[in-house]
Simulated assay, not measured.
Amino acid sequence: MKQGLYILILILTFVACEEIYNPKIDEVDDMLVVEAILRVDQQFNSIKLYRSRGFNATDESYPRVSGATVFLTDDEGGTLNFAESTAGIYITNELLNPNRIYTLYINLDGEQYVSEAQEVPITPVIDTVYGERDYRVSVRGAANTADDIVKEYGIQILADINDQETLNHYRFYGRKVIQYMDTYDTVIMGMPETRPIYIWRSVYPSGIFNIAGPPSYSASRDISKHPLEFFEDDYFKYIPDTLSFMGWIYIIDEFGINENSYNYYNDLNQQLGAEGRIFDPVYVQLQGNMYCDSDPSKVVLGNFEITTRSEFRYYLYYTRKREEFWLRKIPYFYDIPERGYIKDDRPDFWEQISRTYPDE
């Protein structure tokens, strides 16, 4: 009885010392967020407006902003209007003039939001794309043991870009299409036969933005050995190990961007890449190129960007147990669905080490 009483008193002592602490967090008004990435080569462009959410907000969605007047002005006094198609999405079907300098205006609730003027970059180019055998190191958790550090071998695709004088900053986005094959048994004209099944699926990048700019503290504006994409030796993480790997189609979208957009993505990458370690950068409010002209005390989030685009395609084939690999440029751009399969007849976009195209 005494022992049980002592245990009860000890438990009550710990419970009595426990106090729930509710930190005081300042309430901040929802801020206007502008998502405006306009492409010169597109017939249709859109700008999205929505509101930020408070730290303790229970709603996981961001409220769309309707009823705004959105338009661009250029350096010759021209105006390009955006019409609201659905809540918070404003579109135009007019092409941008690559020879103009544009400024974004948003009128909302009696306030006017303005961007810094943006020049239209020239169309970007890649001078050389090549691959090198390499490995990638990733860290799991806090890396307290050697088991938390993973080394993965594969092929790193790199790019060299020579100085384009008026354009030296780029953003890349890659779509990887993995090709593989299966077979099925059938009977044709009374004879058993094994026929092929051509299968493919798309893999997209995740994580931070892939951007490139001229090297710091260098007189040269050339960009060399910029990493585009890493292809793991273990392609069976994407396909069943009972099927035959037939290589990758790598589709590269290269965007020409202005230097202030490059700096915005660079700051964003530093925060997206942070994992809560002691030397990681402190989370701060990202400074875009939008401001409230009518009330400078109001904060607006987001960035206005005008970009140009080029597309490049390559075919990559390798085996898991051999060092050599094949990387070949694809000169013909077929339409490739996200994923699918075709029996018997090889798709027109299907790639292999050696093939011909309609114009050859």
Rank of each mutant, 00 (worst) to 15 (best):
P215D: 10
I223N: 01
Q179R: 03
F209T: 01
V177M: 08
T183R: 07
E232N: 10
D222C: 11
S220W: 02
I239V: 09
D233L: 14
L243N: 12
I188P: 07
F231L: 10
P227V: 03
N210E: 06
W248Q: 06
V203H: 12
F172W: 05
V177F: 11
S202L: 08
V177L: 03
G247Y: 15
G213K: 05
H226G: 00
D185V: 01
V177D: 05
Y180N: 12
S206D: 12
I188W: 11
G213T: 03
H226V: 02
I208K: 08
R195N: 09
Y198N: 07
F172M: 07
Y173R: 01
R175K: 12
K176N: 14
G247I: 04
Y204P: 00
I199L: 13
K237P: 13
R201T: 07
F230S: 04
P215G: 06
P215A: 01
I211A: 09
S220L: 02
G247P: 14
Y238P: 07
T194Q: 13
D241A: 12
P215R: 09
Y204A: 02
V187P: 07
T194E: 08
P205E: 14
W200Y: 10
I199C: 12
D234G: 02
D182F: 09
E229T: 02
D233T: 00
A212D: 10
M191D: 11
S206V: 09
I239K: 10
I178C: 12
T194I: 10
P214D: 08
Y238C: 04
I211F: 06
V177Q: 06
F245C: 06
I178N: 13
I188G: 11
Y235G: 05
A219G: 15
P215C: 07
Y204R: 03
V203Y: 15
Y173A: 00
Y173L: 04
F172D: 01
Y198P: 15
G213Q: 05
M181L: 11
A212P: 13
S244T: 13
I239Q: 07
R221L: 14
I211N: 04
D185M: 10
G174W: 04
I208H: 11
P205N: 05
D185A: 11
M189Y: 15
S244W: 11
G247K: 05
F230I: 00
P196H: 03
D233F: 12
I178R: 08
F245L: 03
V177H: 04
E229N: 09
